[in-house]
Computed example of a mutant assay.
Amino acid sequence: MSHDDPYAPKSPSCDNKFQLVKVESWVNGVTSSSIVGLSARFGSPLPRDAANAIRRPTVLANPINCCAHSSSKLTNFVALAKRGDCTFTAKAQIAQFGGAAGLLVINDNEDLYKMVCNKNDTSINITIPVVMIPNSGGKILEDSIAGGGSVELLLYSPIRPAVDLSAGFLLLMAVGTIVCASLWAEFIACEQVDERYKQLTPKDPSSSATNNGDDSEKEVLEINSKLAIGFLLMASAFLMLLYFFMASWFIWLLIVLFCIGGIEGMHVCLVTLILRFFKNCGRKTMNIPMFGDVLILSLVVLPLCMAFAIVWAANQHAPLAWIGQDVLGICLMITVLQMARLPNIKVASALLMCAFVYDIFWVFISPLIFHESVMIAVSLIFL
Rank of each mutant, 00 (worst) to 15 (best):
G262I: 02
L227A: 13
A237C: 11
I188A: 01
A209G: 08
P205Y: 03
I288G: 06
V220H: 01
F250C: 06
D293Y: 08
T285H: 09
R276L: 04
F187S: 08
S206D: 09
I229V: 13
S248D: 12
I274S: 08
S182N: 08
T285I: 11
A307F: 11
L241M: 11
L227R: 13
I274T: 07
Y197D: 15
M286Y: 13
L183D: 04
V175T: 10
V311Q: 09
I263N: 03
I229K: 07
I188N: 00
F244M: 03
S225V: 12
L242S: 07
G261T: 04
I260T: 07
I251S: 09
M306I: 15
P289R: 03
A181S: 08
F278Q: 05
L233A: 11
L302M: 13
A185Q: 15
G176K: 02
H267F: 08
L242M: 11
A309K: 01
I188T: 00
S206T: 11
S298K: 00
I223D: 00
D194S: 14
L221K: 10
N224D: 11
K284H: 13
Y197H: 14
I229Q: 04
M290W: 13
D215M: 15
K226Q: 15
V175Y: 04
V175F: 06
I188D: 02
I223M: 01
P205V: 03
G282D: 03
T177K: 02
V193C: 06
F244Q: 01
I255N: 07
D215F: 15
I188H: 00
E191W: 07
L200R: 05
C259W: 01
I251L: 11
I251V: 12
E222I: 13
V256L: 14
L253T: 10
W252N: 15
K279N: 07
